[in-house]
């Protein structure tokens, strides 16, 4: 279910991004459309998150904190934004 939906969004999303300046991404399992040209740090700011308090995984690769300002948010990207919570 995930893979066919994802492919559809990627194909449609790339066409849409050229026309409208928007990209379709998946954030913590949720599809979102955001403006193109954002860096990952810019995306976090838009979400109201402090970059120092979250860890970002983009397309299964962990991003080092000092690269967040330079890595672009691209159409079809899948992000996992995680932090520490209570646990045993």
């Amino acid at each position: 279910m995930r893979s066919s939906g994802e492919r559809g969004v990627n194909e449609g999303g790339e066409a849409a991004s050229a026309a409208t300046g928007r990209v379709s991404i998946v954030l913590n399992g949720e599809r979102r459309v955001v403006g193109s040209g954002l860096s990952v740090a810019g995306l976090l700011r838009k979400l109201g998150l402090e970059p120092g308090m979250v860890v970002v995984e983009r397309n299964r690769a962990i991003l080092a904190r000092d690269t967040l300002g330079t890595v672009p948010v691209e159409d079809g990207d899948r992000f996992e934004l995680v932090h520490f919570v209570g646990g045993g």
Binding site: N28, L47, E80, L81, V82, H83, V85, G87, G88
Partner: peptide, 18 residues
């Protein structure tokens, strides 16, 4: 000990344990 979990984007003001 602490656990690693997704940030809750709908309640993004909710604070992590740090």
């Amino acid at each position: 000990t602490v656990a690693v979990r997704r940030v809750d984007l709908d309640r993004s003001r909710e604070e992590g344990i740090l």
